[in-house]
């Protein structure tokens, strides 16, 4: 097993710039049904036409507020939701074309870490059987080699291998999240969607888990899609960051570009809203306080979806959907969907 890991890591560092996942025009609509006949009266456009690439070996942070579609996007990429439209190319194969059994097989390489370490682990299973389950499902190894693998995995995520016979309730939130991570790593995946893996944890534990995920990425050559609403944590772990608002990606660029020179007014507002643990800095800061709430994705505003809350909005913003364009360089693209972004460059 460890040989495979080494080999994989070698291949990945050799060609670190290529694309592992290519997402094109991905949409996920949930029908709204009303009345006795449950007739469809509309759609919740949870993910509405998003396209981006994830490079091998990178961490792409996907941020946005609740209801923006970031979790749905992550799940749709893994086909835990059937996409309404669009393509997800993984290593050159379109996942949306695969049959159910082919998809199940492909999931060996595509794993997920869930938000809530309390509800994502079966309370009636021992830690050992939780982590071994993916191995059993995919028919990897025999019972002896699985046991060895489970112990290795526990050690890898910083838990004592003697914990195999214990049950989830015996562990704290941070330890449970480590168990969830060990399970995701069991099949030796190359791509992991981490859906808010730290937001249910205590502050002092969050940093432990972020550091662990970072170490594992380097050690095993993993690629992450890291979904979060906490922008300050995303900065630590991501190479590139995508910002979502109401089902669309409004900004995508390298971490430093997005955090130091945000081009979309929404990103600017999000960054300015993060409270900082320093009263002196806080006193000096200019906050952009957004008015109102996120509109309903069932009936998004016409034109730019952010325009009703945007301080820079003009007539064109309520008419035309802004193009997702590159205002960075061709080497280091900085994509933004805003009519007025040029003034922020």
């Amino acid at each position: 097993m460890s040989q495979t890991i080494e080999k994989q890591a070698f291949i990945e560092t050799a060609s670190s710039d290529d694309v592992i996942i290519k997402i094109r025009g991905l949409k996920k609509y949930f029908p709204i049904k009303r009345g006795v006949l449950r007739r469809k009266v509309g759609d919740i456009k949870a993910v509405d036409d998003i396209s981006f690439d994830i490079k091998r070996g990178e961490t792409l942070g996907l941020v946005g507020e609740s209801g923006c579609g970031k979790s749905t996007a992550g799940r749709t990429i893994l086909r835990l939701h059937e996409p309404t439209d669009g393509q997800v190319d993984f290593n050159g194969r379109d996942l949306t074309d695969l049959s159910k059994s082919e998809m199940r097989h492909a999931r060996r390489d595509l794993q997920m870490i869930f938000q809530d370490p309390y509800s994502s682990l079966n309370p009636r299973m021992t830690v050992g059987s939780i982590i071994a389950e993916p191995l059993v499902i995919h028919g990897i190894g025999d019972s002896k080699s699985r046991k060895k693998r489970v112990k290795d995995l526990l050690e890898l995520v910083g838990l004592n291998p003697y914990y195999v016979t214990r049950y989830p309730h015996e562990f704290s939130g941070g330890q449970r999240q480590r168990i969830g991570i060990a399970r995701a790593l069991a099949t030796n995946p190359s791509f992991i969607v981490a859906d808010e893996p730290i937001s249910a944890l205590d502050v002092s534990i969050q940093a432990q888990v972020v550091n662990l995920l970072d170490d594992l990425k380097k050690e095993l050559g993993l690629t992450y899609l890291f979904i979060a609403h906490d922008l300050s944590m995303v900065r630590y772990i991501s190479d590139r960051v995508a910002v979502m608002y109401l089902g669309k990606i409004v900004e995508l660029g390298s971490r430093d570009d997005v955090y130091e020179h945000p081009l979309h007014p929404y990103t600017q507002a999000l960054l300015s809203a993060i409270p900082m643990p320093d009263p002196e800095l806080e006193g000096k800061r200019q906050r952009i306080i957004l008015e109102g709430d996120v509109p309903s994705p069932a009936n998004p505003p016409k034109g730019c979806r952010f325009h009703p809350r945007c301080g820079y909005a003009t007539d064109i913003c309520s008419q035309e959907d802004p193009e997702f364009r590159n205002l960075g360089t061709s080497d280091q693209p900085h994509m933004v969907a805003c009519h007025h972004a040029d003034q922020f460059v």
């Binding site: 507020e65 609740s66 609403h229 906490d230 922008l231 507002a269 999000l270 300015s272 809203a273 993060i274 409270p275 906050r287 306080i289 957004l290 709430d293 996120v294």
Partner: peptide
Amino acid sequence: LDVTIQAQ
């Protein structure tokens, strides 16, 4: 609440 609403 979300950060922007938290700020409000």
